[in-house]
Design a protein around this nucleic acid. Sequence first.
DNA 1: TATTGTTATACTCTATAACTATA
DNA 2: TATAGTTATAGAGTATAACAATA
Lengths: 146, 146
Amino acid sequence: MFDLRQFLPYLINRAGARLAVKFAREIAANGVALQEWRVLAALAAQGSQRLSDLARLTSIDLSTLSRLVGRMERQALVGRTRSDGDRRTLRVELAAKGRRIAQAIIPTAERYERVALTGISAEEERLLKGLLERVYINLDRLERHG
Amino acid sequence: MFDLRQFLPYLINRAGARLAVKFAREIAANGVALQEWRVLAALAAQGSQRLSDLARLTSIDLSTLSRLVGRMERQALVGRTRSDGDRRTLRVELAAKGRRIAQAIIPTAERYERVALTGISAEEERLLKGLLERVYINLDRLERHG
DNA sequence: TATTGTTATACTCTATAACTATA
DNA sequence: TATAGTTATAGAGTATAACAATA
């Protein structure tokens, strides 16, 4: 018998969908959509990125991201420049307004994470995060090899 | 400093996105999209459901699910009937073809879960699943109260 | 009046592939 | 030829709200 409630992809999707829907509502007041926050957070945490690195980091499809970053540039949230070394690659960086919004959202994001982790010990939190990383790495390895 | 790589929503989204994209490709050969699989799996595991229960179970928005289930009925994957007791509610059930496809995918799904859990012990797996459930419950509680 | 589900609208995401510019 | 990114297209998802049928 197939037990949906113990099926890992189901549990991850369910928790992730809840997190995403609620968090999107929390940050709507800042004028950014969830995918835009993902881009801002990635740039705030990791610095300016090539578009394709940003796609991997945010798990957003490259062609979707290309248009998303285009809209975000028009809103003055990010800047786009062709890098001098390799003129094919596009560097994406935070613009002043994007940085301001990211800084405003980060405390909300951290508070939200703590709500999600209510009743979960520091030790359990470390385990959970480490295991999620290992799941990701397993699938990443699958991508590269068989 | 904001550490994206230790931020729970990021880790869940990243693992979930990887799981979803790859699994969607694996089951495409069966002629069903990921959201369709979610509906079939929910019905296979939990039996026939009211549409709104199915929406909660699959984390699919009600209006999206309404149209999705409509398309799935046209493909003879599910049946829809107004329940006799309360004529407002719609019961969704597996049709023969939907059941056959679900049964065909379940072993693939279970194999895929084991790949995702490579190198993770049974004890760690139980912990991971329990913690994901607790995260979901924390957010669910947030939904109902403040 | 409240609930269950359907439909409409406008915008966004996804998959796929063709395309440009550069290497 | 391969890589980085852009653009086109069609189908599907999302948010929101209006709506119908039933309770």
